[in-house]
């Protein structure tokens, strides 16, 4: 894929801008981040997007490498997160997609946004509902990942009990409204939707923040 080049007012600040690059001010206006935080995220994005394929776009293998230190390890949940970050569904995460999606993981982001994102994560087949079989599939995947052993009947019991709490209209699947009610009563179910690192992103990547020309 090709790359476009742009430069700021100073030639020494010239930087390569990958396909899908969007101006930090635009992204800051749409997300939980400040302009300097978006710039710091661009430093992170560059690091990830050149880790294997050197094209300035985050591929699934690079996403896995960042999470697991290996590009080979398949993981149902990581692959679901990648799929949802890839808003254009073109197989890569562009910078704007990266920032907009990470914004939902900001500790200060709206709980309703986190709940909506998690709902899409768990709606494996994209039917608009979380079905009992999907939930069972995810519990089994987690058990496989963690080497924990539970009998089939124990898994069924856990899934049935959860559905008995969440499926208030008893139709065997969870709709977005039932899900939102469920997470209000069980906020720990959204624990994976907050990333404390995002509160200190300019501290985590101080080199870029130091050079930023933008005042927030």
């Amino acid at each position: 894929m090709g790359c476009a080049w742009s430069s700021s007012s100073s030639p020494s600040r010239r930087q390569r801008r990958a396909q899908g690059y969007e101006e930090p001010a635009v992204l800051a206006a749409e997300t939980s981040f400040t302009v300097s935080e978006v710039e710091a995220l661009y430093e992170l994005y560059n690091k990830l997007s050149y880790s294997i394929f050197k094209d300035g776009l985050i591929h699934k293998e690079e996403f896995r490498l960042a999470l697991f230190r290996t590009s080979e390890r398949a993981n149902l949940f990581a692959d679901r997160v990648f799929h949802l970050f890839d808003l254009k569904r073109n197989g890569v995460i562009e910078f704007g997609e990266f920032v907009r999606s990470l914004s939902i993981f900001h500790p200060k982001a709206l709980v309703s946004d986190k709940a909506a994102f998690a709902f899409k994560l768990y709606d494996l087949r994209g039917t608009g509902y979380i079905e009992k079989e999907e939930l069972r599939e995810m519990v089994v995947a987690l058990l496989d990942e963690s080497d924990l052993c539970l009998s089939d009947s124990a898994v069924d019991e856990i899934v049935d009990n959860t559905f008995s709490q969440a499926d208030t209209n008893g139709d065997g699947r969870l709709d977005p409204r039932e899900w939102e009610e469920f997470v209000k009563k069980n906020p720990t179910s959204l624990r994976n939707m907050s990333l404390p690192y995002l509160q200190d992103i300019t501290t985590t990547f101080p080199s870029f923040a130091t050079h930023s020309e933008v005042n927030d």
Binding site: F77, A78, V81, F105, I158, F182, N192
Partner: peptide
């Protein structure tokens, strides 16, 4: 058991994006 299935799956390492922020 009173375990909540969504609490269980939220523990997946696949959701732990903090790896992106750590130097390898």
């Amino acid at each position: 058991t009173n375990l909540n299935a969504f609490d269980i799956i939220s523990l997946s390492s696949g959701f732990d994006l903090s790896g992106m922020f750590e130097d390898k």
